[in-house]
């Protein structure tokens, strides 16, 4: 493998946390396979970060004024990506905005950059736009596509992309060594970042790729349940939770510093707001800790939970299917168990 490329979503001069985690994973794979790691940033012409061409001559710019400001913003981004493990930072000019990061906005430019750099592995942070972007990028490149896998080591030490299917219990595993083509992969959050150096090389790539003018953003507003996607801890309330016990779920989520979600059954009963639904076709989550209160663990629910989440199940039924897939469990009524969990958490912190 000669080249691993990571797409970076950045807010001005700051790369997104999930992008840096994907970069860290890219660093580990590139190091083990002797590949060069490219961090690619699509930059709108005249945007907050300015013209990437100025990075190369930042030292010659005057010490103040707009040009110096944009040049140093660019340099900060390069530094952050170098420290995150990138060997080379690639800037690609866009003829429109880079946000929201969708195929229509940045896809053609990203594909054109891939056509030039010919990466064997393209990593995208699993953000709201990566699903829109990644699958079509793979199709454009004639590449394989693996959505939100965990990375495992195969018997020969090779990297295996392993994704949960059928709502758990089964994995579809793709070995990077067995592939006869490039692969595009979206990576969920909460992966370890890498430590690189300040010496990433900067590459400015001229690509001719127009944004898709047939897709026009009309408005873009905040959504309820916004924190679920990146939450480190998620408590999910299932059909065993009632309107009376819902506040206990809220308190547990708050005590664990996490976010509260709900299954479709609970949303359909009107106990939980629909924006908090976790499941296929609703929110997908990738927490480190996933606390399930009174949910059976249907395939449609668990397919939306990252397979490397540690599941803790609280259920009154000792035969509940969720207890077969959870790592930790307790059998009991939510009204009895959760208050004691809250008390134990308070006691530990006191």
């Amino acid at each position: 493998m000669a080249c691993v490329l990571v797409h970076i979503e950045a807010d001005g001069d700051t790369p997104g946390a999930t992008s840096l985690e994907a970069l860290g994973e890219g660093r580990r794979i590139a190091s083990s396979s002797g590949a060069t790691l490219y961090a690619l940033v699509a930059v709108p012409r005249g945007g907050a970060v300015g013209d990437p061409r100025r990075v190369a001559r930042a030292e010659t710019l005057p010490p103040f004024g707009a040009e110096a400001a944009t040049a140093s913003a660019h340099q900060r981004l390069v530094d952050a990506l170098g420290q995150g493990g990138a060997d080379k930072v690639v800037f690609v000019d866009l003829d429109g905005p880079a946000r929201p990061a969708l195929w229509a906005t940045i896809g053609p430019a990203l594909a054109a950059a891939c056509a030039q750099l010919r990466p064997a592995l393209v990593l995208l942070p699993a953000t709201a736009g990566s699903h829109d972007l990644g699958a079509r990028l793979a199709a454009r490149l004639g590449a394989a596509y693996v959505a939100e896998p965990v990375l495992e080591q195969g018997p020969r030490g090779e990297v295996v992309l392993s994704r949960q299917v059928y709502g758990g219990g089964w994995r579809r595993r793709t070995s990077l060594e067995d592939l006869d083509r490039a692969v595009v992969v979206t990576l969920p959050p909460h992966r370890a970042e890498a430590r690189g150096s300040d010496e990433a090389e900067v590459l400015l790539l001229e690509v001719k790729a127009a944004t898709d003018a047939r897709v026009k953003l009309l408005d873009d507003g905040a959504a309820d349940g916004a924190g679920l996607g990146r939450a480190r801890v998620v408590v999910v309330a299932g059909g065993g939770v009632t309107a009376a016990s819902w506040p206990l779920a809220e308190q547990l989520a708050a005590a664990l510093g996490g976010e509260l979600g709900a299954t479709r059954a609970l949303c359909q009963r009107g106990v939980a707001p629909p924006a908090r639904e976790i499941g296929v076709g609703a929110r997908h989550v990738a927490p480190v800790l996933y606390v399930v209160l009174g949910a059976s663990g249907s395939a449609a629910h668990l397919a939306a939970v990252s397979p490397d989440a540690e599941i803790v199940a609280v259920d009154k039924d000792a035969d509940a299917p969720i207890l077969r897939v959870a790592s930790y469990g307790i059998v009991g009524r939510i009204e009895d168990v959760v208050p004691r969990m809250l008390a134990a958490l308070r006691q530990e912190r006191a």
Partner: peptide, 23 residues
């Protein structure tokens, strides 16, 4: 393109939750 379909494997191992005796 069969190599990119991936191999289907059943997950074995954990055999269910480790149950705690109390909250």
């Amino acid at each position: 393109r069969r190599t990119s379909v991936g191999k289907l494997r059943q997950v074995r191992g954990k055999g269910g939750a480790s149950l705690a005796g109390s909250p």
